[in-house]
């Protein structure tokens, strides 16, 4: 029997806190062996997602974000801040991480091929630059970040289809050191929308199909569409209430271990399942 790839289209675009809570929930559920390898495709409306090690104040113009109704949420992986709106499609893949001898190489070399395959199906000629930036025609169209915890090997990222780049450049503070070194003046010149590069609009459905096929080929797997399990939803609810909706997590750069009560509740939830 072919390897199976479960696909979830579960998303809460108007509640980015829940979207990111669910991201952790399904990664944990995969790591705990409660679900098959899972590809999640989802969208956020107007949010800045910052990396595990970042300080919100340093990356985001908080005043501007608040004025524009852009929420700031932390993800559990490292890397840099990204701006999401409905012009992005996000992908996240969680596979069993326990038998992977070199998870970093596997994630950034093998799993990333799913995204490259999807971009080829959409008519692009993508390249990977500097470990994990996906570039088309010299412009960055996707960044990826991997994480290896809870027994899962996990990679996620965002595809820019038709993002509002003006809002992006208003809310994200330009990484000065990076730009000075590259002689680039603003964040918005480093990234590009796929619709601009391809000269045509890209629909959500078309991108979903390309991602599913891209990851099917990369993993040698057969995809099936599914709904979140009750454990994933319960875990997401706990994560949402105690972590992802809290300023302590989103703004303060604290480690997971700060949320002791939550960790205990998640362990008992998954051990009961």
């Amino acid at each position: 029997m072919a390897r199976l790839l479960r696909v979830l289209l579960f998303e809460t675009p108007h509640d980015p806190y829940m979207n990111l809570a669910f991201e952790e929930a399904f990664a944990r559920a995969r790591g705990a062996g409660l679900v098959d390898d899972t590809l999640r495709i989802w969208r956020n409306d107007r949010a800045v997602i910052i990396g595990y090690f970042q300080e919100a104040e340093g990356e985001v113009d908080m005043e501007e974000a608040s004025k524009l109704g852009v929420k700031v949420v932390r993800r559990f992986s490292g890397g840099g801040a990204v701006y999401h709106d409905l012009g992005n499609v996000n992908y996240a893949l969680a596979v069993d991480g326990r038998a992977v001898p070199d998870p970093i190489g596997y994630a950034y070399t093998d799993l990333i091929r799913g995204v490259l395959g999807a971009l080829r199906l959409l008519g692009c000629e993508p390249r990977v630059e500097n470990v994990n930036d996906i570039v088309v025609g010299g412009r960055k169209v996707s960044g990826t970040a991997a994480s290896f915890r809870w027994g899962a090997c996990f990679i996620h990222g965002t595809l820019l289809l038709s993002v509002d780049l003006a809002t992006l450049s208003r809310v994200l503070k330009p990484p000065k050191e990076k730009l000075l070194a590259k002689g680039v003046s603003e964040v918005k010149y480093r990234v590009a929308n796929l619709s601009e590069l391809l000269g045509r609009g890209l629909g959500y459905r078309e991108v979903v199909e390309a991602l599913v096929r891209g990851f099917e080929e990369a993993l040698g797997a057969e995809a099936y569409f599914d709904m979140p399990s009750s454990e994933e939803l319960s875990a997401a609810r706990l994560l949402y209430e105690q972590k992802y909706s809290s300023p302590q997590w989103n703004l303060n750069r604290v480690p997971h271990s700060v949320f002791q009560k939550l960790e205990g509740e998640l362990s008992s939830l998954f051990s009961r399942a």
Binding site: Y52, F53, E55, G78, A81, I104, P255
Partner: peptide, 16 residues
């Protein structure tokens, strides 16, 4: 000491 940024470090909690 406080170290922040957009680097990739595994395991992540080695930073703390």
């Amino acid at each position: 000491a406080r170290i922040t940024g957009d680097f990739f470090l595994y395991p992540e909690d080695a930073l703390w």
